[in-house]
Amino acid sequence: MTDPNDVLPLAPRDLLILVVLAEGPLHGYGIVKAVEERSEAGVLLDPANLYRVLRRMREQGWVGECDGDGSDRRRTHEITARGRAVLRAEVERLDRLVKHARPALG
């Protein structure tokens, strides 16, 4: 397993998707809603791009599919251990960044 820091930084959209999945498995629309709320409507997803990101994350092993409550068509995704590692690495990176940047504001 490669170092999670290799894939940083994450696009805000990707970060937010990992964040909402970290709280529990969600189906497509669930992710759209949660991301919209979490970003205070700053990130609005359309279905095609959502699945594009999910597909990439699946291929990189950050998220996986699981059985959800919905129909066959409504696929549910959950975060994997690797996904959590990436998320943690990114949040820590941002944390450090903010910590260093803050004093500049005086």
Binding site: H27, G28, Y29, V32, D46, P47, A48, L50, Y51, L54, R55, G70, S71, D72, R73, R74, R75
Partner: peptide, 12 residues
């Protein structure tokens, strides 16, 4: 993913 994409749009 096609079906899932359409389903998400419908839900939205």
């Amino acid at each position: 993913d096609g079906a899932a994409i359409v389903a998400t749009l419908e839900d939205q």
